[in-house]
């Protein structure tokens, strides 16, 4: 377990030294701050505009980081062969994968917390405060980042960085379309199309379950039971994806 924590710590240190994290964080913070100006164009919907832009920026930045870095910390290392010195030490492949993932998720959570803090400040300047649903939405976004990071590591475990990134982005987009995929399956007249659509519906992560942005901006309350079960679903999915990644990565020939 100490190997996992060591690798997680190293991952955090590596990523903190990189420029991608800071540039994306700065861009997101500026975007959230800019929502204060956009809100002035509207009539009586300041809270909604700021919150929508803030949570939207948080999701885009987090998803980008989760996928780009998630792919980079595994597939990038394999491509550059920098993984070999690490694995030459008494570090198992599962510990490497898990450590990379945990370090990345920690960084994504800190990143989300910083953006949420900026959002809180901007809302405060406009005379508002974060509601409970907004906090639940932000928490579930962090779970979504974990799912995306696990999916990125999974694809990175057997593919090239570009392909793995493409697959992970496809998962992100399809994951938000899953309710419509279900509707398609229900309405489809073709039995084969219905079966395939239903299979994909159950196989792919339903990221809309982790999407409470609209509820937060419409100030609609969400039960804690729902938030916990959705978060549990997301974490379980991430665990399954990561286990699959470890399984594939353990058997991969890195030579």
């Amino acid at each position: 377990m100490s190997a996992v924590l060591t690798i997680a710590g190293n991952t955090v240190r590596e990523l903190v030294r990189g420029k991608l994290l800071y540039s994306l964080l700065l861009f997101t913070a500026l975007f959230v701050a800019g929502s204060l100006l956009v809100a002035q164009l509207t009539i009586g919907n300041w809270f909604r505009i700021i919150l929508d832009m803030g949570l939207g920026a948080m999701e885009v930045a987090g998803a980008l980081l989760a996928i780009v870095i998630g792919v980079g910390v595994v597939a990038g290392e394999i491509q550059r062969k920098t993984i070999l010195p690490t694995l030459a030490k008494p570090v198992s492949r599962w510990a490497f994968c898990l450590g990379r993932f945990l370090g990345l998720v920690f960084l994504l959570t800190v990143n989300g917390a910083v953006i949420l803090l900026v959002l809180r400040v901007v809302l405060g300047l406009a005379g508002y405060t974060l509601n409970a649903t907004a906090l639940q939405a932000a928490a579930l976004l962090c779970v979504e980042f974990a799912v995306l990071a696990a999916v990125a590591v999974l694809f990175a475990s057997f593919s090239t960085p570009i392909l793995a990134g493409s697959y992970a982005f496809a998962f992100f987009f399809i994951g938000h379309l899953l309710p419509d995929l279900r509707t398609f399956a229900e309405r489809s007249r073709s039995g084969a199309a219905r079966t395939v659509a239903q299979a994909f519906y159950h196989l792919l992560p339903n990221l809309e379950l982790l999407n409470l942005k609209s509820h937060a901006s419409n100030e609609l309350p969400v039960t804690a039971a729902y938030a916990w079960s959705a978060a549990g679903y997301g974490m379980a999915y991430a665990a399954v994806a990561l286990a699959l990644a470890i399984l594939i990565f353990s058997r991969r020939d890195l030579g």
Partner: peptide
């Protein structure tokens, strides 16, 4: 709404801002 990938409330804001202008 489906093609917004979860950002439909942001699109709603955008069209409301257009109508206000």
């Amino acid at each position: 709404r489906a093609l917004c990938f979860g950002f439909h409330s942001l699109l709603g804001d955008f069209t409301l801002l257009q109508s206000i202008q």
